[in-house]
Design a protein around this nucleic acid. Structure first.
Lengths: 122, 122
DNA sequence: ATAGAATCTGACATTGATGTCAGGTTCAAC
DNA sequence: GTTGAACCTGACATCAATGTCAGATTCTAT
């Protein structure tokens, strides 16, 4: 598929898709005229990339991580280097802390929302 | 306490603490010479602010939200306006989605880490 | 062949919290 | 009072993904 459809199906802007390619996160074939042609699997990959971005990973880390995923390509995935594992463990811990913080903030919001709703009579 | 101690105890930089004040998130008394003097409760408030920032809220939203918290001051808290409630509900939903994404990304990282650990023999 | 939609590259702007630096003032201890 | 640490303000820089725009090229349908 071409970039417009991929953008539509993933909810990610064309601008970002081109950026992903530039960062080595997302490969694309090219038509004779130079237009990008994506395989069907690109949809899942883009969504995964977005999730990793949302988790606070930077593109460089994602670029190192992606080849180690088994379900990204059918092909044989690489094994994470020790340095990468260290980094990923740090990221995982950070994500764990973030989930805790998010949950805490969620409760704060809920409290305020509930207090106001009770006033209004829901 | 003064800004240096507050920074130390919260892990938030002095720069950020001044920024919080500028954004109306954190009040401070002033000594005769103009130095900031914080009450003990500032520690908790700063930590809460940090959590809300980590949850992706912008300072303007936090500024509107803080007066509605009951445990921030002992005093009577304000009730959230309908507009604010709308915004907070949107934020809460976004946080919920983010937690889901984070959990998903956490699993991805775990998988790669485990695969590498098994190779190394843990 | 041609028109209009889609895509290309490249450059510049934005966002918002935070880092950093400079030059000056205040505080606390001796 | 002096000195060094802590603090003040104000300005400018940073980061990284994304938005946006311009001008050119390609694709697709008629």
């Amino acid at each position: 598929m071409r970039i417009g459809e991929l953008a539509l199906r993933t909810g990610v802007s064309e601008r970002s898709l081109r950026y992903y390619e530039q960062q080595g996160l997302l490969a694309a074939e090219r038509t004779a005229g130079g237009h990008r042609e994506y395989p069907e699997a690109a949809v899942d990959r883009v969504i995964r990339i977005q999730e990793l971005f949302a988790a606070g990973l930077r593109s460089k880390t994602i670029a190192r991580l992606l080849p180690c995923l088994r379900d990204t390509d059918g092909g044989p995935s690489e094994i994470a280097t020790p340095k990468l594992v260290d980094d990923l463990v740090a990221e995982r811990d950070r994500i764990d802390r973030m989930i805790i913080e998010l949950t805490s903030s969620r409760e704060v919001l809920d409290e305020v929302i509930d207090a106001a709703s009770r006033r209004t009579g829901s």
